[in-house]
Amino acid sequence: MIQVESLYKKFGKNKVLEGLDLHIQNGGIFAILGPNGSGKTTLIKAILGMVLPNKGKISVLGDSIKNKWKYRQEIEYLPQIANFPGNLKVKELITMIKDLRNKPSEESHLITLFGLEPFLDKKLANLSGGTKQKVNIVLTFMFNSPIIILDEPTNGLDPQAVIHLKELIQKEKQKGKTILVTSHIMQFVEEVADNIVYLLEGKIYFKGSIAELMKMTDQVDFEHAIATIANTKTNA
């Protein structure tokens, strides 16, 4: 479904991705983990075509994405920082994205689920960070696309909203979708993810299930297992 072959990307002198290979098959939830600055967001943005790689090839649904844009119709993306044009109302933003995507959408139950009705007529600039993130989630989940990419989806959410989000993710998984998630909250990752992709120094250091990861690192606790990878690499 998503194929990344020897991807290189540097920003100025800062080499972020150094020959990254990643193959993601159909269906399932993949957590992309790694220390700060390991290139998680760069990888995601490269898949979305927002960051242009220096070298390497990315294919989505079997086709190379180079100079293409229509494939983004098949991807829903939740950006890390929910920045929206401030002078738009929530309602207008939703209508606009629907108009731009030109696809059937079902936003009403999501709006109810996250309790956004009272905010529909408010301008986005006046919303709190958490509410903005909820709007962000509604925009991401209201379409029916085979690939969903979530960059730090739990940012700023209250516990109840996190529970709803987890349910949503599971529901989408059951529809056979491919979901990529990044998060710094290991508990969240442990609960939702089927597979872990661990990025370190611009490459994939580990790819497999949580059970495999714990076996490899000799840890019983997921959070410690992740921390162990980071340590072994820096000590070596």
């Binding site: 229509k70 983004r72 991807i75």
Partner: peptide, 10 residues
């Protein structure tokens, strides 16, 4: 922000 939102759209 608007631009970044649009860049992820088809």
């Amino acid at each position: 922000e608007f631009t970044e939102l649009l860049l992820a759209q088809p």
